[in-house]
Nucleic acid binder design. Sequence first.
DNA 1: AGGGTTCAGTTGAGAGCTCAACCAACCAGG
DNA 2: CCTGGTTGGTTGAGCTCTCAACTGAACCCT
Lengths: 161, 161
Amino acid sequence: MNEPRWLTEDEQRIWRAYTAATKLVGERLDRQLQRDSGMPATYYEILVALSEAPNRELRMSELAEFTRSSRSRLSHAIARLEENGWVVRRSCPTDKRGSFASLTEVGYSVLRAAAPGHVAEVRAALFNGLTAEQLRQLGEIAEAIRDHAGAGCPAASCDGD
Amino acid sequence: MNEPRWLTEDEQRIWRAYTAATKLVGERLDRQLQRDSGMPATYYEILVALSEAPNRELRMSELAEFTRSSRSRLSHAIARLEENGWVVRRSCPTDKRGSFASLTEVGYSVLRAAAPGHVAEVRAALFNGLTAEQLRQLGEIAEAIRDHAGAGCPAASCDGD
DNA sequence: AGGGTTCAGTTGAGAGCTCAACCAACCAGG
DNA sequence: CCTGGTTGGTTGAGCTCTCAACTGAACCCT
């Protein structure tokens, strides 16, 4: 096979800015949550997903889908959250293989306490640096990437296969 | 203190698309490199930075800056890369505290072998889903975020202080 | 010189993630 | 039934990352 199609100088500049930006934002968010609320960003997202679900609980597989997490990662995470007393597992009555993750009252208040700082950090790290127009563009671009990259890689949130 | 400034519905939509998109892209890239070349994306970036440096070597602290990595992470990473024989440490003659990380021939060929697949995945995961105009916008947005988020958080690549 | 401070880098413990293997319950088809 | 495959979820090992503590070298200031 012949020479691959390398990135042009422009593409390389964009790619490097992209990785730098996303890395910085991700690290800021993670650091803030860890420092102020004692949880990584992924756990925060789990709590958010649960808090928005009817009855504040979800099947593990649905939760995995919402949070775009592998089942394995989620399982480990829920185990940790359960240790903290923020979540409890409930076994599913109709399908004995399944289980629900259910947000506890404690978990809910931890989430409520964490939210303001998190939102502030989102603004500080991402939104405040952009014009309104750029923000709008970013939304469209992110949606395009999400739909495109998600389609091209079905294994993104699956374990084995 | 009073009610924090929550995200509007639009802002929330943008934020969620952003996290979804960046997570998907990051995971695709990482997965591809791990599968095809046996290294995480962060190690790839280290090898790239070294390969572009004069004499293919850099001081640890410079390398940390280029790769936007904490000194600690880099130290662990270089230890691992040294085990693989892809990098060697050289102590600095003029400053006995310092050390250089130096890309070996083996490391260089591993990098050359990994590059085509990586570039293809960058295109597949990110570029191919966007119009030329969106790509241009993404570049500007990413630069704005990088400069803004980097400034607001000096601790991003420092250990203790 | 001598003493404190800063600087470059390392180390170890603890935590989260990935991958592959696994188990148990459901579901077909014969 | 019961057998084979699929599905829902868990587990453990290995790896990377973070955070904090630490070492030793350089610098500064009298």
